[in-house]
Design a protein around this nucleic acid. Structure first.
Lengths: 243, 243
DNA sequence: GTCGCGGTGATCGTATACAATCTTGTATTA
DNA sequence: TAATACAAGATTGTATACGATCACCGCGAC
């Protein structure tokens, strides 16, 4: 066990699932997904079954179940007899992800605007405050995670569970894409756009919400470097195309 | 083992994975998914791990992996310490599924129209022929399956893998919805719409393809009975609203 | 010096065994 | 008679063990 402390150690929690309604594998999957979201585990990192099991104090059986779930969400890639690796979306995949988001999210924001309640407003404001706090603390990973949760929250307000699930997957993959292709620039425009979105929502202005969301997603894409090929491949095999 | 012959028996194939690149669990998951698609296994059916393992000649380990995958696709529902059951989408979920399809597929059809090649046309025509053959043979289940595959094929032509994956999930759930809420009526309009779609695609008429797809999905929804609550609920809890 | 080849270690794939939980049948009692 | 408590059976949840496959590395031949 040479890597260590990339993720929360087993001593952080009771190592016994605190949510008895959930299976242990779901617990492990959540923890891993959060760590990936927050960029505490970087794309390309190998997730050995033994190692993960040791960290969380569970057997390989439950680790395998968790990894399979994450694989289905395309957060990790399973290679037969090789192991699990945090996914490294290609530039092509990155474009597709944001095209899908552009297709789903503006319309969802419009729906959300028509249904935003006072309670929703409070939740959104809390979210934005948390984003600001994370940025102020310099915790970029957490800020990225919270920023994604904001988009998911909008889908929740729209009361479209099926679409929300898709957006959840897209946000997760977006987190990987940001980790790979982010070029530092305007980090503040993010939460600014979220503020504008919230204003449109509470004003029940669906058209405005749709426009703001569309522009926000475009800004997001343009803050990435999707031109240069060969952006941060971790595995030597991928560098040279062997295997 | 009292149920039997709902799905293809183990003697149908070699019971040894014929695709060595795929894990055995993927093989089992595919067979089960196909059986569910074709309505050979109906919503609400319990899929016991032992039973499935016996049918396919594999151990519970691989069955569990397959069931987990199907659960993620929402084809089955896993209940802790209870087992796996073929999913029974509620009317609300059914509406959401088709709303999501209405959001994704028309635009995807437009993209596909701009990229349809001669080879694609052949594939589409083959598909439509197979649909006709299945209908002529009275195999409604297979016709439903092939009809869904047609929609997935369009997403493939559009070269949008991410969106294609979403549509694949939605088509799968649509199959369950059709099994639950289908009210017999115009079974032929289906393939007719598919013919119209193909014509729009080969003519590279994106606008027409988008319109046809939108209308086709609306027809599909209106062929369902999503008004009556309590349409074929299997669980008594759902009948009486307890828990 | 480079290419090909087999040994070796590590890791995953699958099967089996045991523990925990739920369901169900039965007997007991008010 | 009906309700409850208890026990037996069945099913899933988890852990462990063994076998298969692949990557890595050293050795030898060309």
């Amino acid at each position: 066990m040479t890597t260590g402390r990339l993720m929360t150690e087993a001593t952080d929690d009771t190592s016994i699932p605190q949510t008895p309604s959930l299976g242990g594998s779901a617990h492990v999957a959540e923890k891993l997904a959060l760590a990936i979201h927050e960029h505490r585990i970087l794309p390309g990192t190998k997730l050995s079954e033994d190692e993960v099991g040791e960290v969380f104090g569970v057997s390989r059986t439950v680790v395998r179940a968790a990894l399979q779930q994450l694989s289905h969400d395309q957060l990790i890639t399973l290679k037969r007899n090789r192991g699990a690796f945090v996914a490294q979306p290609s530039i092509h995949e990155a474009r597709e992800v944001f095209e899908a988001r552009a297709l789903l999210e503006p319309r969802t924001a419009r729906s959300a605007a028509e249904r935003t309640t006072a309670a929703d407003m409070v939740r959104l404001q809390t979210h934005i405050d948390a984003e600001h706090a994370a940025l102020a603390a310099g915790d970029v990973g957490r800020a990225v995670y919270l920023s994604g949760q904001f988009h998911i929250e909008i889908a929740r307000i729209a009361q479209q569970d099926t679409i929300r699930e898709f957006i959840t997957q897209l946000v997760a993959r977006s987190s990987l894409i940001i980790a790979l292709y982010w070029q530092r620039r305007s980090a503040l425009c993010e939460s600014h756009a979220h503020n504008a979105l919230m204003r449109a929502l509470v004003a029940h202005d669906g058209t405005l919400a749709e426009e703001v969301m569309q522009g926000h997603l475009l800004d997001l894409v343009s803050s990435l470097d999707l031109q240069n090929r060969a952006a941060t491949p971790r595995s030597l095999h991928e560098v040279f195309g062997t295997r």
